[in-house]
């Protein structure tokens, strides 16, 4: 039985889509470009240093852990870089670089690799890094500098504590974290991701919608202020939508998004911390396994079988 043909066998399907994991990661990074430009425009070269520091540290940490574990190094898939960049964009512009390094290491090691690496983490790694820094170095993490051309009334307070014109918030001329100030830039990136289908519209819509409704009802500053202030826009579009840590079912995504919005408002209005986006997403990340389990969609043909 000679076989000169050298065929391959595999089970069906024999064709696959062209989409790859790393492509998704790089597309999201591409969507972050406007935000990164905005951060450079408003905060100058400091923004670049922070972005570079976080990106490089995150990638180095990834390599280090994978080498240590004897696993193939998957630095090219872009996921570590993405985590690093997102983390950097949530940090205050004047944060000491060593803190950024520390945050990136925490994000990659504690946020991702203790669970087994990409795809297994329960919590958003970038948020883990940010939360760790926030709780460790409260002072440094809440010192906001005014951006170039900004309204110079906010040099110490976070935007959520001060007065700010909504238009300034929208464009980004207020103090705040690197990437969180300019809602305009964030929306640009978000629209691109929505258009490309890399994020589910349900999460940002549900999240922002809930915040808008609740702040209209209880907030003192009104919905438009809450929507554009702080890290909400960035969180709703780039962090809550993280595939690994959000639900896979559609119903689940609604619950997740509304839960995020609800907790954000609770923390903003009643809590000790000025900003609730960070913790609300982490808290909802925690619920994702349960949400997934209890929001199984009705399968084809299930109605009739039960009826």
């Amino acid at each position: 039985m000679d076989n000169t043909l050298d065929l391959t066998v595999s089970s069906a399907p024999h064709v696959k889509s062209e989409e790859t994991t790393s492509n998704i990661m790089y597309q999201v990074i591409l969507a972050l470009v406007p935000v990164m430009f905005a951060s450079f425009y408003f905060f100058g070269p400091g923004a670049i240093y922070l972005l570079l520091t976080c990106g490089i540290t995150a990638m180095l940490s990834e390599v280090a852990v994978q080498k240590l574990r004897g696993k193939p190094v998957t630095i090219n898939d872009g996921s570590a870089l993405l985590t690093g960049l997102i983390l950097a964009l949530t940090l205050p512009p004047d944060l000491p670089l060593w803190m950024a390094v520390f945050g990136s290491v925490v994000a990659i090691v504690l946020g991702k690799h203790i669970f087994g690496g990409l795809g297994y983490n329960v919590f958003n790694p970038a948020l883990m890094g940010r939360a760790f820094l926030t709780l460790s170095y409260v002072v440094s993490m809440t010192e906001w500098t005014a951006p170039n051309g900004g309204v110079d009334t906010l040099s110490t307070a976070t935007p959520l504590e001060g007065e700010a014109e909504v238009i300034n918030l929208f464009i980004g001329r207020v103090g705040g974290s690197l990437g969180e100030t300019s809602a305009l830039a964030i929306l640009l990136g978000g629209l691109y991701l929505l258009y490309k289908g890399y994020i589910d519209w349900r999460i940002p819509v549900g999240y922002l919608g809930t915040v808008a409704v609740l702040t209209t009802l209880v907030g003192e500053q009104g919905a438009s202020f809450h929507l554009f202030a702080g890290g909400l826009m960035f969180g709703a579009i780039f962090m809550a939508t993280d595939m690994v840590t959000s639900p896979v079912t559609k119903k689940g995504r609604w619950i997740f998004a509304i839960g995020c919005g609800f907790i954000t408002v609770i923390i903003r209005v009643f809590g000790n911390y000025p900003e609730g986006v960070l913790f609300s997403i982490l808290l909802m990340n925690m619920c994702v396994p349960l949400i997934d389990q209890y929001t199984l969609p009705q399968i084809y043909g299930e109605v009739k079988a039960n009826g």
Partner: peptide, 12 residues
């Protein structure tokens, strides 16, 4: 062994 530090070998 140092490789075991993160449980690599078994998986590998």
């Amino acid at each position: 062994s140092i490789k075991d530090l993160f449980g690599g070998t078994a998986a590998v």
